[in-house]
Amino acid sequence: MTMTMPDTAVAATAPLLEIRNLTKRFNAHGGGVVRAVENVSFSIGRGETFALVGESGCGKTTLTKLVLGLEKPTSGEILFHGADLATASSKAMHGYRRQAQAVFQDPYSSLNPRMRVSKIIAEPLMAHGIGDRDSQRARVLEMLDVVGLPKTAADLYPHEFSGGQRQRVAIARALSLKPAFMVLDEPISALDVSVRAQILNLLADIQDEFGLTYLIVAHDLALVEHFSSSVGVMYLGSMAELGPTESVFSHPKHPYTQALLASVPRPDPDHRAPVGVIYGEIGSAMAPPPGCKFHPRCPYAVDICKTTPPVDRELAPGQLVACHLAETIVPPVQSSIAPL
């Protein structure tokens, strides 16, 4: 028993997914280059939930496409179980696609309206040639049960379901291959407020049950704090801050993270988000500002920020911050946050 301890310990701590210096550039129509993702690195441990946050245009969607193998990186590595996807054979890629599944934001457009639910959930099994019709049918019914839908749902069409139920179907489809890893792209933001918690709880339950690793993209920071173990805050294609969710949310060190957290509207009438923490809007990924990309909006920016891109520095255990001034700045004062 003591002999096997080190091995299991290594297996448990080795990241399932490791992103190293990942960069993706697109050629824009009419010339110019969109720097969608620039030199991003992070890793996700087995069973962990890594959240990507940032405003629209920050590159989080491109990043998930790269991770799912739907786009090829310009440079950098995506290691799954230690093997690089960029140099993977098409057979290895096929195997990866079986391991990595996705749940998208809008269950109205992510489900084929002309397919019965049984076909929708069985389709990944057919694509990968797994099992015969009977075993596929059995898997469909098993998955429906896992996501809390009745067996009768199998013979219905997507339009016969509400948004929350459709998202359950989408989750059942993603689960049918028993993947190790799932990308959740805004999985609840298209749903009614009163059914969001059901879906979040379901995602937490199946994570425990199947030992899933999640990469979640979300703009709701309260949700991210609740749901994730690690978080990466992106700004204009770069990682501004990265680390355990608890440390990043309780002690945000990058001025952008601080501004995002301060801006979140809270269900508390006595809380007032401080105005003017940052002004303006996110710049263009075609012509990102020199130096630190955040400097035009940063209230603390000094000369070095305008010329020199900051490098990641570990300022707390596991918490990487790309800011020249992170040690010296004080987060904006929050107005009273009395518990409800």
């Binding site: 979040l200 709880n201 920071l221 608890e246 957290l261 809270r266 946050i337 409800l340």
Partner: peptide, 16 residues
């Protein structure tokens, strides 16, 4: 049923 910043709970109380 909604998560609140700064008040982490394991499960949300969903409305059925």
């Amino acid at each position: 049923s909604i998560p609140h910043l700064g008040r982490k709970r394991r499960r949300l109380e969903a409305i059925a």
